[in-house]
Design a protein around this nucleic acid. Structure first.
Length: 591
RNA sequence: GGUCCGGUAGCUCAGUUGAAUAGAGCAAUUGCCUUCUAAGCAAUAGGUCAUUGGUUUGAAUCCAAUCCGGAUCACCA
């Protein structure tokens, strides 16, 4: 247990013993002491003043003395300012903490808790390449999976590929019309980009045809339906569903190109999946749910044969679950997929990393599973994240004004290369080593940029102002890691034997920060929020840099101090590498 | 229109289980490399926490109303 929690517990005990009242953990408020006051952690007294009818000074004195007397190993002193009881933690506690953890490479990781979690993320369509929005999704999903692993969960990463439907047929039609048999191989283009280009071509052609029809006096709605390319696409979808061999062959061929492209990108950015579901396999799955729901009276049938669920009691609407022609809608498939996932892994929690535009859909999905009495319904969790927007508004892949994932990664890597060259610190690196370093820094900057913001919030990306490499950024933290490594490379190992005393303020500040890591890892999992780790890693790095500028490690005042600082360096490096690792960001030895 | 989410420094964001004088980074200004990596450190400046009212010993945080922005409410996915 960490100091803050211990302090909470003993404070609760103290107040209960002194005044004979019963408290819960929530009644006890422990804050970090503000730097302008003396002390490390602070018990807020205000809520007890009224209840116990004692002035804060007296209350603080009584509690403080009681705490000090009964926890000599934990506290060394206290002071009272207004309604705040500031407690100083015994220096021995910090030194012991450091001594027993600085070698611990797994510091921050918990033991297995026997619970299983499925994390579904990325989930692309196969008609266009990945863009910036996917990157936020992928980094988030990957990171949250790692965070849960660190908290002791067994995690299975999955992906649902939207590989069928009208949008896929659009690319196929456009390819038939305009490609003249060209392939990614013949053009040298990456497969997903190649197919994406035809998706854009389709939309251009469709727009052109609609305008022609409009000019002939047709209504907009009618024109959109009657445009020849649109009719051809509808026809192709029917043929696909009927299993027409030529259509299936083309579909397989084009999806294959896309998968080859995706694999390259996934590999580069470090995404991986234990199991991939394909919509073409799952889209018919949900129908038995409809039967079941009808039998249970959860669903009802309208006169035209369509099947609905009435969610007006929950403040929602009526929702269609099966079309009048008996075909599945989106939610029907998702019901089926939820069951399939549960059959595959009897999970305790099933996380869906999906944008907040689908909040309503996911709410409905969970509600329906609940109404059907599915035991796994409560485990369904929508990790909802905000859209990444450009200064001009949302990205529209139909119009091709997206920030392409591959382009962005390339750009970040090349900027990091330029930057590294200018600084000239790694002139002895081989070409291979340089390439690896540029990747680490470029991807680090990009991942950190997307993960440092609360997932729930939408964010704006301005391509004109490229992502920063200074301040609250990935490279700043990576740089701090490299700095520490450069000290530790001198091959002097910290020693257990030399026990320091009289911690300097900056030494203590850093140790306190490092001691909080466990809580941060827990918090990130509870909130499903990697940004708390990003913020924390930055604070650790910043605290270290201040310490580093003020105090020398290798030329410390004494041997004892030197070894204390070496221990601090080792623990700092473990925490930074671990926290960044949970964000999917590597840290370099040198940069 | 119903539901939901957001509005904090010029910009990008923390802080939102109520608590001490609202914090970072970028941008601006100014110092610091003969000392373990200056992708760094230190300092200055920058605020009507959208607005109004309420609850409270105490409100950026809770409640209500209003204004602004966004998402969603498809026999699309």
């Amino acid at each position: 247990m960490n100091v803050a929690d211990k302090t909470r517990q003993v404070s609760k005990l103290a107040i209960e013993n002194l005044y004979g009242i019963i408290l819960t953990d929530k009644d006890i408020q422990i804050n970090e002491t503000k730097p302008e006051f003396e002390g490390d952690y602070t018990l807020v007294l205000f809520s007890f003043i009224k209840q116990l009818k004692k002035p804060p000074e007296q209350l603080g004195k009584e509690i403080g003395e009681h705490l000090l007397k009964n926890n000599t190993d934990l506290f060394s002193g206290f002071n009272i300012v207004k309604g705040f009881l500031n407690l100083s933690v015994n220096e021995i506690y910090w030194i012991d903490f450091l001594n027993s953890n600085y070698k611990e490479v797994n510091y921050g990781k918990k033991n297995a808790n026997g619970k299983k979690v499925m994390v579904e993320y990325s989930s692309p369509n196969t008609n266009k390449p990945l863009h910036l929005g996917h990157l936020r999704n992928i980094f988030l999903g990957w990171s949250i999976a790692e965070i849960l692993k660190a908290n002791g969960f067994e995690v299975v990463k999955t992906c649902i590929v939207n590989d069928r439907g009208i949008h896929i047929c659009k690319s196929m039609i456009a390819w038939q019309l305009f490609a003249n048999g060209e392939t990614p191989g013949s053009t040298g283009k990456k497969g997903d980009h190649f197919v994406g280009d035809y998706y854009v071509k389709f939309n251009e052609e469709s727009k052109r045809q609609v305008e022609e029809l409009l000019a002939k006096g047709m209504s907009k709605e009618e024109a959109e339906k009657e445009a020849p390319v649109m009719k051809a696409t509808q026809q192709m979808l029917l043929e696909w569903e009927a299993g027409k061999p030529e259509v299936i062959a083309l579909w397989k061929k084009m999806n294959g190109w896309v998968y080859e492209g995706f694999d390259v990108t996934y590999k580069r950015i470090g995404a991986d999946f234990a199991k991939i579901y394909y919509e073409s396999d799952t889209y018919l799955l949900g129908k038995k749910f409809v039967e079941e729901g009808l039998k249970q009276g959860v669903f009802f049938k309208k006169d035209d044969g369509s099947v609905w669920i009435d969610l007006t009691d929950e403040g929602l609407d009526e929702k269609l679950v099966l079309r009048k022609d008996g075909t599945s809608v989106y939610i029907t498939q998702d019901l089926g997929l939820a069951q399939e996932k549960y059959d595959d892994l009897h999970y305790d929690q099933s996380i869906y990393v999906i944008g907040d535009e689908q909040n309503y859909h996911m709410k409905v999905l969970k509600l329906i599973l609940k109404k059907l009495g599915k035991p796994y319904a409560d485990g369904v969790f929508h990790l909802s994240y905000g859209m990444v927007e450009l200064p001009g508004g949302r990205m529209k892949s139909r119009e091709g004004n997206t920030v392409d994932a591959d382009d962005l990664v390339d750009e970040m890597v090349s900027i990091s290369g330029r930057h590294t060259e200018e600084l000239g610190k790694v002139k002895d690196f081989s070409t291979e080593e340089l390439k690896e370093l540029y990747d680490i820094i470029g991807l680090g900057a990009l991942k950190f940029f997307l993960l440092r913001v609360d997932p729930k919030k939408k964010m704006i990306f301005n391509p004109e102002e490229s992502i920063d490499f200074h301040g609250f950024t990935g490279p700043f933290i990576q740089y701090t890691h490299a700095r520490i490594k450069s000290i530790l490379r001198k091959e002097i190992k910290a020693s257990h034997e030399l026990r320091a005393t009289n911690l300097l303020p900056l030494e203590k500040k850093l140790i306190i920060k490092l001691e909080q890591y466990l809580t941060i890892v827990e918090q990130a999992a509870i909130e499903h929020n990697p940004s708390v780790l990003a913020i924390y890693a930055f604070e650790v790095a910043k605290t270290f840099n201040t310490f580093y500028t003020e105090h020398s490690v290798m030329k410390a005042e004494s041997e004892v101090k030197k070894h204390l600082r070496l221990q601090v360096c080792e623990l700092t490096i473990h925490v930074i590498a671990s926290a960044m690792g949970l964000l999917g960001i590597k840290v370099p030895e040198r940069m």
